[in-house]
Nucleic acid binder design. Structure first.
Lengths: 193, 193
DNA sequence: CCACAAACGCAGCGATCACTGCGATTTAAA
DNA sequence: TTTAAATCGCAGTGATCGCTGCGTTTGTGG
């Protein structure tokens, strides 16, 4: 979605080079969205405001992203797919605890949480997918690695319900803190003590 | 927040009577919000649009609710606290299965889901509380009833993580269906087969 | 029955929004 | 280097939004 133009390849090739203008504009707009959502909340997020904050003209944002929903989905997707490493501690329990702790740290950040909430509200189904990001696939990778160790990991569905879902629910719908003890207990309840 | 006026008692007394004008306006606005969110999505939801759909002047909506966020929180709160009965089937498993099935039916409705998403996006912490509604307290009531039967129910936290969280997560963040089989399996995994 | 207060409808204000031709600039390819 | 395409900045337009005095209607208590 970053560039829904008829020919996305040139945009990608220009964006792939870190110093290009297109990439610089994109980064500035992304940063502006994150800052605005963190400060003002998702309500006051409009294209002209974002453009002004990013030092870019509103026309550019309108043409590249089209709407606030697509813009938020793009920002959230970048945030949830970029600098994430699938942990490899040697054991399934260790991997899952590390994975859950990383996710808890992300969702516990008020700025990230505000971004997720805003994306859910305006992005619809597409926004929801952006909030999931690569988390599901990473979980799948962890379970497959355990299977390669000749272990018997739980199913992906069960792991999602036991670990991923409580983390997202508690972060988004409640004001309870995502403590390390509670996060670890999710893994324990799944794998047994 | 339905009536943040300095003296809410007269509004309530007039609103408590089902035929009062205040109550009629309130119902019309609520219905307009639900219809608009279901049709257009949460983005196009503005006070003038809601007022026009409800056959009410925008001034009234601005004065009674103030902002789209508070309006959405009010509508969602009504939706999630109104016609809900705590099941009493005689056993903890039966109660939980009934409870989970009811919640799955609610969250599975696309209109309700759109309302929840929009409320999360614009309502912030207050919107999140509105989406939870009375669900948490109802769950507490079920567990306390089991304790009165001299049973040993799981803790509220554990039940929330095992039943409530997966339902909300799957509904809001994924496009997977909330099937009765899967819903029942949540209770089974909590209580043991 | 009458007076008081609350809620609603009406008209209009400034501000902002979403969007669009046009020219300048940068980038990629020949 | 030259040429073509894509991106960005600029200025402006119609529409809508959020909000506010003022008069009218509705509901309540004396």
């Amino acid at each position: 979605m970053p560039t829904p133009s008829p020919a996305p390849s040139p945009a990608l090739s220009s964006g792939s080079r870190p110093g290009g203008r297109s990439a610089r504009v994109r980064a500035a707009v992304h940063r502006a969205v994150e800052e605005l959502v963190a400060d003002e909340g998702g309500d006051a997020l409009t294209i002209p405001v974002v453009a002004a904050r990013a030092g870019v003209h509103a026309t550019t944002v309108y043409r590249r992203w089209g709407s606030v929903g697509e813009l938020l989905a793009d920002v959230t997707t970048s945030r949830f797919t970029g600098d994430i490493v699938v942990p490899d501690t040697g054991s399934l329990r260790g991997d899952l605890e590390r994975y859950a702790a990383d996710l808890a740290k992300d969702l516990g950040d008020p700025d990230t949480l505000a971004l997720v909430r805003a994306t859910i509200g305006t992005g619809g189904e597409q926004g929801a997918a952006a909030c999931r990001g690569e988390r599901q696939r990473q979980l799948e990778a962890i379970l497959e690695r355990e299977q390669a160790r000749d272990g018997e990991p739980p199913t992906l569905e069960r792991t999602t319900d036991a670990v991923l879902a409580p983390l997202y629910y508690r972060a988004v719908f409640t004001d309870l803190p995502l403590t390390p003890e509670w996060t670890r207990s999710l893994v324990s309840r799944l794998l047994g003590d």
